[in-house]
């Protein structure tokens, strides 16, 4: 564990708490893409299935349980409890165009042709693109509540910090993980536009609005 990875994991945790806070406080999931949240639930389930047969540490296990549990809880909140506030009209990204290529890529580019490795690779590829429905929805709405932008910032920063963690681990331990590295770069890259507007608007006290 190093400071980059710890901070990254804490940012990831924070992003989920911010999202839960947004939904509970406003009693609404307006502006949140259900499709992205569904994809995250799928990401966590396919990656952390090793929870049952691979022990790393108590920290690792508790985090895995939290990520699976909270993602399913958010799906429940959006689909059942606050269903009326969900706006599927704006959530129009075609996730099959994401799921199919990720599945195909996982079958071709993996560390071993075993169910566990294929599922792991799939989860890493899917995570890289899982934010796309959310960013697409943001684009269509043209604006976002400030708390939603904090959620997106924390979520984007998490993978960005992992890049620093990987540089550090390569230098300190000779650790190499090409699949996670390339997917992590893509994932962080998708946030560039968002980070720019977050920095120039939200951090200066303005509303998050996209140019018309």
């Amino acid at each position: 564990m190093n400071i980059f990875r710890l901070t990254a994991d804490l940012m990831h945790l924070a992003s989920i708490f911010i999202l839960l806070l947004k939904i509970q406080k406003t009693r609404s999931c307006a502006g949140i893409s259900f499709k992205s949240q569904l994809l995250y639930a799928l990401v966590f389930i396919t990656r952390y299935i090793d929870l049952f047969f691979y022990w790393v540490s108590l920290y690792n296990t508790l985090m895995k349980i939290f990520f699976i549990g909270s993602s399913l809880y958010i799906v429940y909140l959006m689909q059942v409890k606050f269903r009326a506030t969900n706006d599927p009209v704006l959530d129009t990204f075609r996730i099959e165009y994401l799921l199919a290529p990720c599945a195909l890529l996982a079958l071709v580019a993996n560390y071993a042709f075993t169910a566990q490795e294929i599922l792991w690779a799939f989860s890493v590829y899917l995570e890289a693109g899982a934010i796309l429905p959310q960013l697409f929805m943001l684009q269509r709405r043209g604006e976002a509540e400030t708390i939603t932008t904090h959620y997106l910032f924390a979520l984007g920063a998490y993978r960005g910090l992992y890049l620093l963690n990987w540089i550090y681990r390569y230098w300190a331990e000779g650790y190499v993980d090409w699949i996670a590295w390339i997917a992590g770069l893509v994932q962080t890259g998708l946030y560039t536009d968002f980070f720019y507007i977050y920095y120039t608007k939200v951090l200066k006290g303005q509303k998050f609005e996209l140019p018309a």
Partner: peptide
């Protein structure tokens, strides 16, 4: 095939 790195990250 390349060996799989230790899966100790989240």
């Amino acid at each position: 095939a390349l060996g799989s790195p230790v899966k100790d990250e989240l």
